[in-house]
């Protein structure tokens, strides 16, 4: 509880409280997700995005409760469907800042089929993936990023599967911005959320966020705190090749921007179709946006 009070005080002081709702988060004490709410509030504040122009879309899972804790528009949808729903919101109104949030189960198990498509379309949304390597909301079952050998109630002997490599997948799908951060380093996280949101196009931020309740074996704060390392200096963020090498580099996981290239967004392409068809583009407010 000490942790929570400290965070609230910090937010109060920073003037970012207006982005926070009055609802008290449902997460376990010590969960890294608190840092993410704070990070998003910080980013919205830093980028000067009005809260009524912000839509946070989530699926189902611990992290998907996220929208309730911000005072923006939000959609708490179905398990795995945050990305297509967020796509609909953005296509409907390009003036909105649209965030999709969710966990590893939501995104890389049930919702995995949507990932390549939202990436290839380059929908101008930011996807914050909170990876705790476990199904926390249903009390600790194996997830697609759980380590092989991991014991959970659904894999009582051991998890027979290899974990997915979300960063490598998103890079190979052609996401135009891919980065990684760590809930144990809130300042890095804040900075990365700002960068991801400032990117015009689909940005994928993978956030390592160990489950403090159900996973006491693997990526614990204890382990990670010692071992995450920054993306090496001189890494070429315009090279997909270099980014993929980084993503397959194994432990300790590098945090920072892996890949960032400008590319026309889905909205740009759809506007292009309107021009091709001889139609008239709708008037838009044009959301203010910080340069990358």
């Amino acid at each position: 509880m000490v942790y929570l009070e400290e965070k609230l005080k910090e937010v109060q002081d920073s003037g970012r409280l207006e982005y926070r709702s009055k609802a008290l988060p449902t997460w376990c004490p010590g969960c890294g997700y608190f840092a993410m709410v704070d990070g998003v509030a910080h980013a919205l504040n830093a980028l000067g995005i009005p809260k009524e122009n912000t839509v946070v879309v989530s699926g189902i899972g611990c992290s998907s409760r996220f929208p309730f804790f911000l005072d923006t528009f939000g959609m708490h949808t179905l398990h795995g469907r945050a990305l297509p729903t967020a796509t609909g919101v953005k296509v409907a109104n390009e003036d909105l800042t649209v965030l999709a949030v969710g966990g590893d189960g939501d995104g890389f198990a049930i919702g995995c089929g949507h990932l390549p498509h939202v990436a290839k379309r380059n929908v101008d949304i930011t996807y914050l993936l909170f990876d705790n390597g476990i199904y926390g909301l249903t009390k600790g079952q194996t997830s697609p990023t759980s380590a092989k050998g991991f014991k959970t109630p659904t894999s009582p002997y051991e998890n027979p599967d290899q974990p997915l490599n979300p960063l490598l997948m998103m890079l190979s799908y052609g996401a135009s911005w891919v980065g990684q951060s760590y809930a144990g380093q809130p300042d890095h996280l804040k900075e990365m959320i700002v960068k991801a949101m400032a990117h015009r196009g689909f940005s994928y931020l993978h956030i390592l966020s160990p489950c403090v309740t159900f996973d006491k074996t693997h990526r614990t704060y204890g382990n990670l705190g010692m071992t995450v390392r920054p993306v090496p200096a001189g890494h070429d963020t315009t090279s997909q090749d270099a980014a993929m090498r980084l993503a397959t580099g194994g432990d300790p996981p590098p945090i920072g921007v892996y890949y960032a290239v400008p590319r026309p967004t889905l909205g740009d392409s759809l506007d292009g179709l309107v021009v091709k068809a001889g139609g008239e583009l709708p008037r838009r407010r044009g959301t203010a946006r910080a340069a990358e």
Partner: peptide, 16 residues
């Protein structure tokens, strides 16, 4: 990419 995505986006756009 599929009908689930189609209806999800439709409802997303409806929400907007």
């Amino acid at each position: 990419e599929d009908e689930i995505s189609a209806i999800s986006a439709t409802i997303g756009a409806g929400f907007a």
